[in-house]
C-alpha cells in the first residue's frame, strides 16, 4: 500500500484550532437543541428520529474533526467500514428477532393455531 501521508506536505496535519472552536460551539448548540426538542414531548417515533439524527450529527462532527477522520489514511477508513458492516448485522438480526418476540407476546393466536388439539 503506498504511503500517501508521508508524501503530503507536513502542514496538512497541523491542528486547526479555529475549526475546533467552531465545532465546540456547534456541539453545545446541538446539545441544547436536543434537550429542547425532547421537552416538546413529541410522539415517540418522531422524538427518537430527531434525537438519533442530532446524535449522529454530533458524533459525526467529533469523529470527523476531533478524531481527524476527515483526511485520515484510507486504511483507517477501510477498517471502520469493515466494523460498520459487522456491527450492522450484530444489531439488526437480534433486533428483528426481538420484534418477533414482541409479535408472539401480543399475538398469541398463531401459537394456538399450530396446536389445535391442545385448545379447548
Amino acid at each position: 500500500m503506498p504511503d500517501k501521508t508521508a508524501a503530503a506536505p507536513h502542514d496538512a496535519h497541523r491542528p486547526n484550532v479555529r475549526l475546533f472552536a467552531a465545532v465546540f460551539g456547534a456541539l453545545l448548540c446541538l446539545t441544547l437543541l436536543t434537550v429542547a426538542v425532547s421537552r416538546l414531548r413529541l410522539e415517540r417515533p418522531e422524538a427518537i428520529t430527531v434525537g438519533l439524527l442530532i446524535a449522529l450529527i454530533k458524533g459525526g462532527l467529533v469523529a470527523a474533526v476531533f478524531m481527524h477522520l476527515w483526511g485520515e489514511n484510507t486504511l483507517v477508513h477501510r477498517v471502520l467500514y469493515t466494523v460498520a458492516f459487522f456491527a450492522a448485522f450484530l444489531m439488526t438480526l437480534p433486533i428483528l428477532d426481538g420484534h418477533y418476540f414482541v409479535h408472539l407476546l401480543t399475538n398469541p393466536a398463531p401459537v394456538a393455531a399450530q396446536h389445535p388439539d391442545e385448545g379447548h
Binding site: 425532547s38 434525537g51 478524531m67
Partner: peptide
C-alpha cells in the same frame, strides 16, 4: 477520549431524552 465522548453523545438521548 473522543470515542468515549461519542458514546456519551448517544447514551445521553437514549437514556435521558427519548
Amino acid at each position: 477520549w473522543h470515542f468515549v465522548d461519542i458514546v456519551w453523545i448517544f447514551l445521553f438521548p437514549a437514556l435521558y431524552l427519548l
